[in-house]
């Protein structure tokens, strides 16, 4: 059984979280640059220019890209032949998150869901982290991380369609969600779509779909074609960067599908703002 020291895990995750707050990943940068080239509206183009200038400034001065530094969301695959010594994996992730947010001057954004008071002094600074664990073969720990903002999360939706509604039904639902969202989720956006599974599996898949590098093809050719079709349809909405009107609303559509119950067709749409802050490490 391979061993990883608790402190090493904390150190690696902390470094990743701090870096991600101020460094827009290459895939998002390239997608926004492409949108800037292709945008027809001058107003939207000037917004995209501001977004690119902001990314440059954040990187060179090591400032958070956005004041909403998000909730820390992790998908973690733990190999069956590896164990963390000196503490639990969950504790290490939470400790790394808290240290990174505190020391990186990032915002503590978790609150009680009813009285809305900030939980930084009782649960921890921007804690708890949102962690989705899976057990996989092997002796590695793979960690995918995203700093997920509230604005784009607020417009995300899930439903269960009747199987007869099929692809057209999915198309209509996604289109309605993005149309209703309009300027609110900070377009240009990446749209994660989870299809099939059960209600919660669809939601989780739509979140995980956002972790794929924007611009990379879906390994499933049918889904890849559906993603392209959806992107084209969504860009017809004319929402544009920050909703000011334009041709470039959606940078990418990412779909993950799962087998589902014969009676159901769950569909979930999770939206990612243009500040698509994600990273991954393997230990």
């Amino acid at each position: 059984m391979r061993e990883i020291a608790y402190d090493d895990l904390v150190k690696s995750v902390k470094a990743m979280v701090m870096h991600t707050a101020s460094h827009l990943p290459e895939d998002a940068l390239k997608a926004i640059e492409k949108a800037y080239e292709e945008e027809k509206s001058e107003v939207a183009k000037s917004v995209l220019k501001q977004i690119l200038d902001n990314a440059q400034l954040a990187k060179s001065e090591d400032r958070p890209l956005c004041q909403d530094t998000g909730l820390a969301v992790y998908f973690i695959n733990v190999g069956e032949d590896v164990k963390v010594v000196g503490g639990s994996i969950r504790d290490a992730i939470n400790e790394a998150t808290e240290q990174a947010y505190k020391e990186g001057y990032l915002r503590a954004s978790t609150c009680d869901c009813f009285d809305r008071h900030n939980l930084k002094d009782e649960v921890g600074y921007n804690l708890p982290a949102v962690i989705h664990f899976d057990i996989v073969p092997g002796d590695k720990i793979e960690i995918e991380y995203a700093a997920k903002g509230g604005g784009s999360e607020n417009v995300s939706r899930a439903t269960v369609l009747a199987p007869a509604q099929g692809k057209p039904g999915i198309m209509n639902f996604v289109k309605q969600v993005i149309s209703d969202a309009g300027p609110n989720p900070c377009p240009p956006i990446i749209v994660g779509v989870g299809i099939g599974g059960t209600f919660e599996v669809a939601a989780k898949s739509s979140k995980h779909a956002l972790f794929r590098e924007a611009g990379t093809p879906n390994p499933n050719p049918d889904l890849d074609a559906f993603e392209k079709e959806l992107k084209e349809e969504l860009n017809k909405l004319g929402i544009g960067a920050m909703g000011m009107g334009g041709t470039q609303t959606v940078l990418a559509v990412h779909i993950e599908k799962n087998p589902c119950h014969i009676a159901s067709l769950p569909v979930s749409v999770n939206v990612q703002c243009h500040s698509s802050r994600h990273s991954h490490i393997t230990l």
Partner: peptide, 26 residues
Amino acid sequence: GATGGAGALIAKAIKKAKVIAYEELG
């Protein structure tokens, strides 16, 4: 409207900041 997600850039236009009420709201 200001550009969402351009928080580093916008901060450059802010020269001074002072909390004047409700400090407990962070």
